[in-house]
Design a protein around this nucleic acid. Structure first.
Length: 739
DNA sequence: TCACTGGGGATTTTT
DNA sequence: TCCCCAGTGA
């Protein structure tokens, strides 16, 4: 091992190849470097690549590790099992699923599929009309699974005075049906990939021993993010050889909401006897000014393993906080910063804009488009979640697995074939009674559904049979092209939408087909292809042009950029309001912020705003917003604060004129709500406010503004709500910039 | 029984 | 913006 490229702590960790090792690696301290060099070291010591397993959380991390190991040891890297927990489990299940009572060709239901299934079950249940949100149920079920609960003992986790009793009762009900349905569909959901692997190991010791024996060296990246199930899996796999090497940073634990148990990293030394711990605190990514800020922020968290990052790079700009008047101004501001950085010689590829929630990306993308700055969204709706992709994949999945009813339900009337919901319901009932799959029930359509539908079904079935016949005899891309055209999907996209939309949908499908052709050349069958893409969230597209990267903070983890712009550093978003009611929640949000900040190598910008327009009851509600308390609670010497002219004006200007009754331009409907209020409009330096005299209030309904008076830095509107009489409502005003 | 339309409502983070 | 639902017309 070349000593020069590793520091002493890194080298010590790399050289400790036997036994249990925990590397506590601060952000940017060369965690991936340690992992990859350790693999290289093992291979140098003649460990067979077949005996090495490396587990990561994201595909991105897995790919990066593969590449970096490849560059160290060449093609031997190809034989190492490197992948996400989910993909490694999938690989194991592909060979072994029959041992636990599933058929080969099992389906994998993704998050959307699971939700669809849950909705279907809810609809048929007594909870149908209740206020139960399917997403909540899905979340509950997934959490239960990740905590190793099943539908039988689900309710035992709550005490007698469970405030959410009804919700949990509904969850338990749906949970059971959901699991049964998955089983009869010969399908697994994402959580099952891990759980079924564990039950495979529990029920089949031979298989377990095979893998325990195979994986002499087990490595886990981002150990702080492991949940109960993953922890059990790691323990099982490393049991025989006991060479377990985990890398993590408790300060970057951001998946608590998915069941990640930060205790796993704290308990490592107890769990694995003789464990050795190495700390990496030297940061090679950011300069000291960025680290000072991140250190101060994370220090506010309790119970952490103390680490203080330091850097040899002392020079560098102080992080900047820029406050705008609202989100619109903010997104334009972000575009301008990108432009300025680019003018200063920074490549757009070296700029990342990161945010807390995906929803924030829309405005930003818009602003970038307007400013002519190319951007790529690294999170967002992924390629494989697009409607057109899911449609064609559903057709293909049926060719592999006719038991997976969900796929059939998706495509049987897409495009429209006059097979409506009631016909499908009848088929469903018939299938259920006769204990056959929905697909098999199609053969009996004549007896079950009206004639017109029966004829369509027969046609559909004939078409599918044709595809099936062709499946093994023509190339994959030809098969897909055929399915795309003959099913009518292509025509549907062409006809049902605008030109631009049609083009984009068709391009996406063509891209998928191209990708399939490449994969077939590498020896993948249709089945392999469907499995391999089922866990990928975004297709690697070769980006030719420079572009700014957009992503959530969660997906930013593990990445680094010279210039990082963190948007929406506003209380309510960061920390997110959903997580703000518990200490643990707030601390996780703080870690998230910490992750964001520590992505930056040389320039860090944080942006916030003073008013926020959100939607409530169909109307825009404008509320006051303030810079995240994560920043305001620490010394402001650590960053440079700038307020834009507009934000200042917003704070200083108060007068208002009732000049118009038209809806506020650019904002759709007039707006506001209790305790808050209002919006905007206008141009130029001389700000005049244009305020609608018709407003709508979430509680009081529609009303007429009868009087406006200035008061302090706000307005008071006197509004006549017909049903509730006259009310005085506080309103804050946010001017916008000249467009 | 099916398709289409318009209005209303909703959006944390990921494999 | 996109998704879901109720209502309507064929």
């Amino acid at each position: 091992m070349k000593k020069s490229i590793l520091n002493d702590s890194q080298l010590a960790a790399v050289n400790k190849t036997k036994g249990a090792v925990l590397v506590l690696a601060g952000a940017g301290s060369g965690k991936t470097r340690v992992l990859t060099h350790r693999v290289a070291k093992l291979i140098e010591e003649d460990v067979s690549p077949h005996n090495i397993l490396a587990l990561t959380f994201t595909n991105k991390a897995a790919n990066e590790m593969k590449e970096r190991i490849f560059s160290l040891v060449g093609s031997r890297a190809n034989d190492i099992w490197i992948g996400t927990f989910h993909s490694i489990c999938l690989k194991i299940l592909m060979y072994n699923i029959e041992k636990i009572g599933y058929k080969k060709g099992f389906a994998i239901y993704d998050a959307d599929d699971s939700l669809a299934l849950i909705k279907k079950i809810l609809k048929l249940s007594k909870y149908e009309s209740s206020e139960i949100n399917p997403k909540t149920i899905k979340y509950n079920i997934s959490n239960a699974k990740n905590d190793s609960y099943n539908y039988d003992n689900y309710l035992t986790q709550f005490n007698d005075f469970d405030p959410k009793e009804y919700e949990h009762e509904a969850t338990a009900y749906v949970f059971e049906k959901y699991e049964n349905e998955l089983k009869t569909n010969n399908a697994l959901d994402f959580d099952d990939l891990l759980l079924k692997t564990i039950s495979l190991f529990e029920k089949n010791k031979e298989t377990l021993h095979y893998y325990q024996n195979k994986f002499e060296y087990v490595m886990v990246d981002e150990y702080q993010d492991t949940n109960e199930v993953q922890y059990r899996l790691i323990k099982m796999l490393a049991y025989m050889h006991k060479n377990l090497f985990v890398v993590g940073d408790d300060d970057q634990s951001i998946y608590g909401w998915r069941g990640a148990n930060i205790e796993n990293i704290y308990n490592f030394e107890k769990d694995f006897k003789g464990a050795v711990v190495y700390k990496l605190e030297q940061n090679y990514r950011s300069h000291q000014n960025i680290l000072n800020l991140s250190n101060e922020i994370i220090k506010k968290n309790s119970g952490r393993k103390d680490k203080v990052l330091f850097s040899d790079e002392k020079k560098g700009d102080k992080p900047k906080l820029i406050v705008y008047s609202d989100e619109y101004a903010e997104s334009r501001g972000l575009a301008k910063i990108c432009q300025d950085l680019n003018d200063d010689g920074e490549s757009l590829n070296d700029i990342a804009i990161i945010y807390r929630t995906n929803a924030q990306s829309r405005l930003i993308e818009q602003a970038l488009v307007e400013a002519n700055i190319p951007a790529k969204n690294l999170s967002g709706r992924s390629f494989y979640e697009r409607k057109e992709i899911k449609d064609i994949l559903a057709y293909l999945n049926i060719l592999i697995n006719t038991d997976a009813d969900l796929y059939l339900i998706r495509v049987i009337n897409t495009p429209k074939r006059k097979i409506g919901t009631s016909s499908i319901a009848k088929l469903n009932a018939y299938a259920f009674e006769n204990n056959i799959s929905l697909y098999e029930s199609l053969d009996f359509a004549e007896d079950i559904v009206p004639k017109a539908a029966a004829i369509s079904i027969k046609k559909f079935k004939t078409m599918m049979a044709e595809f099936e016949l062709k499946k093994d005899s023509i190339p994959l891309n030809d098969l897909m092209e055929r399915v795309f055209v003959k099913s009518g999907l292509k025509d549907m996209y062409i006809n049902a939408s605008t030109m631009a939309e049609a083009q984009s949908r068709i391009e996406n499908v063509e891209e998928l087909i191209k990708n399939a052709a490449e994969r077939e050349n590498q020896g993948e069958t249709l089945e392999d292809f469907l499995y391999n893409i089922s866990l990928i969230t975004n297709m690697e597209r070769k980006e030719v042009n420079e572009a700014v990267s957009l992503m959530t903070m969660h997906s930013a983890k593990g990445l680094e950029y010279r210039n990082v712009l963190i948007s929406g550093v506003v209380t309510g978003i960061l920390p997110h309001a959903f997580s703000a009611n518990t200490q643990a929640g707030i601390e996780e949000e703080r870690r998230l912020f910490y992750v964001g900040i520590t992505r930056a190598m040389s320039h860090l910008y944080m942006t916030s705003y003073t008013t926020r327009a959100t939607r409530a009851s169909g109307f825009f509600e404008v509320t006051m917003a303030s810079t995240s308390n994560f920043l305001t609670e620490i010394s402001d010497d650590l960053y440079e604060k700038q307020e834009t002219v507009q934000a200042k004006q917003m704070m200083n200007n108060i007068s208002g004129d009732k000049t118009s009754s038209s809806p506020f331009s650019g904002f759709g409907k007039p707006s506001f709500s209790s305790g808050t209020a209002f919006k905007k409009a206008k141009s130029d330096i001389n700000i005049t406010y244009e305020i609608s005299d018709k407003v709508a209030h979430p509680k009081f309904g529609k009303g007429q503004v009868v009087e406006i008076s200035g008061q302090g830095d706000s307005l008071v509107l006197t509004v006549d709500f017909k049903e509730h009489g006259i009310k005085k409502i506080f309103a804050a005003i946010a001017p916008i910039e000249k467009v």
